[in-house]
Design a protein around this nucleic acid. Structure first.
Lengths: 223, 223
DNA sequence: CTAACATGAAAGTATTACTATTATATTTGC
DNA sequence: GCAAATATAATAGTAATACTTTCATGTTAG
C-alpha cells in the first residue's frame, strides 16, 4: 500500500484550488501545516494569516493556492475521501465473498485512523481528527448546491456508491442501500465524535468499537 | 398537544441566554425572526446587525439577550430538542407494547416536520430546516467540551437516553443501545439533509421515507 | 541573459463581532 | 401622578477577519 501510494497521486477535483499545492514546496507546506493548525485551534479560529506566520510565509502567497479557507477545507476533505477510497479498493479487492467483502469495507470506513502511513507530508491521523470534527462544515453551507454542481463532492459520493454496490451484492432487493451506505460513513464519523466529546451517549468506547456496532447493524439489516 | 403547549413552557438551559427572550416582546421577535433570517441567508452569513435591521431594532439590544450568535444557535437547538422530547413523550406515553412504542418514537424523531403547530411565535417547520442544515455547528466547535460541562446539551442527551430506554425495553442485552439511539437521531437529520442537497446518495425520497428506513433498520437489528 | 513566474511585504477595504457610553422611552412601585 | 428603575435605541469605537491590490525581489527556463 505504502509502495503504491508513493507512485500514485491522490487526485482532488482541480476546481477546488487556484494552484495545485502538490506542485511546489510552499504548496505542500500549506497543506501539511494547515492540518496541524486546524487541529490545534479549530477551523473556525483558523486564518491564512496565522498559517502564514506558522510556515514563515505570507498570507497573500497562500491566497494564490486557495481562494478561501473554505476551499482549503474542501481540499482536505476531498483528499481524505480519495485516500479512504483507495484504502477501500485495495483492502477489499481480493475478497470474493460478498459478506466478507462488505465487512472489510465497513471496517475500513468506520475505524479510527491511528497510524500515519507516512508516505507524504500529510499526517493521516491528524487529518482524520479534522474530518471527524470539521468535515461537515464543508457541506453545511448556503453554497452547497452550487458547489455540488461544480463537482466538489464527487469523490465522497463515489465512495458511498461503492459501499452501496457491496451492500446490493448481498441483498439486491434491499431498497435503502444508498441510505445505509451514507449512514455507515457519516455515522461512523459521528460515533467517533461522540466517543471524544459526548461519551455518555455512545457505546463505541471501552473496547467496543464503532466498527463492531456497524457490522452488527448491517448484518442484521441485510439478513 | 396544542392545548398543553399553550400552558407549558419549553424550558431551555438558562445559562444559554443573558436575558430570557420569552419574557419580552423584543425577545420573542428576536427568536421569531432569527429563525426566518438564518433560514434565508444561512447561519454563517447571519449577523445581529442584519437581524436588528429586520426587526427594526438595534444590534446592541439583541446583545442584551444573547452573548453571541453561537449562543443563539444553542438556544434554538435546545428549544427544538425540548419540543421534540415533548412530542416524543406525549405520542408514546399511552403505548404499552414495546415494539409499537419504539416504532412511534422513531417516527417522531425522524420525520420531516411539515406542519407548524402554531402555538407560539416559533415556526417549527422553518426551525426544523435550520436544525437539519445548521444544528451540527452548535457542537462542532473547539469549545464543545466546556459548553457540555456547562450543561448546554442536556436536553439533547436526555432525548437520546429516552430513545435508548425504549430500545433496551425490547432487547435488554443489546450492547449498542446508546449508539443506535444517537444514530437514529443524527442519521435522521442527515438523511433529510441528503434528500435536499445530495439526492443521489440517499433512498429517502420519492415516497420512501427516512422513518421507514430507520424502522426497518432498527427492527432487524433488535430481532 | 532576459522574460516569465513564484513569493514576499505592505497597505488598503469592507465587514464582523463585539463593547461602551449616553440618551430616551416605558413600566412599576409608592 | 411622579420618581426610580428598567428596557431599548443610537452612536461610536475596537480589534480581528477575509480578503484584494500593488509593487518589489528572487528564481528558473529557454
Amino acid at each position: 500500500m505504502k509502495n503504491l501510494l508513493s507512485v500514485l497521486k491522490i487526485a482532488v477535483p482541480d476546481k477546488i484550488y487556484l494552484k495545485d499545492p502538490e506542485t511546489s514546496d510552499l504548496g505542500k507546506r500549506i497543506i501539511e501545516h494547515s492540518i496541524l493548525l486546524i487541529h490545534e485551534i479549530g477551523f473556525d479560529n483558523f486564518t491564512f494569516k496565522k498559517l502564514g506566520f506558522k510556515i514563515g510565509s505570507n498570507e497573500s502567497s497562500i491566497y494564490r493556492y486557495f481562494e478561501s479557507k473554505h476551499k482549503l477545507l474542501l481540499y482536505l476533505s476531498s483528499w481524505y475521501w480519495a485516500w479512504l477510497e483507495y484504502q477501500l479498493v485495495i483492502e477489499t479487492f481480493s475478497i470474493s465473498e460478498s459478506k466478507a467483502k462488505l465487512e472489510k469495507a465497513i471496517e475500513v470506513v468506520t475505524k479510527t485512523i491511528a497510524i500515519d502511513s507516512d508516505f507524504s507530508h500529510i499526517n493521516e491521523v491528524i487529518l482524520y481528527k479534522i474530518i471527524v470534527n470539521e468535515s461537515s462544515k464543508s457541506f453545511l453551507t448556503k453554497e452547497v448546491d452550487t458547489e455540488n454542481k461544480e463537482g466538489y463532492f464527487e469523490i465522497y459520493k463515489r465512495l458511498i456508491t461503492r459501499l452501496k454496490e457491496m451492500i446490493l451484492a448481498i441483498k439486491p432487493e434491499y431498497l435503502f442501500a444508498l441510505s445505509l451506505a451514507s449512514s455507515i460513513l457519516e455515522g461512523g464519523l459521528h460515533q467517533n465524535f461522540l466517543n471524544e466529546h459526548f461519551p455518555s451517549i455512545t457505546n463505541c468506547k471501552d473496547g467496543k468499537t464503532t466498527t463492531e456496532f456497524f457490522i452488527h447493524l448491517v448484518e442484521n439489516t441485510l439478513k
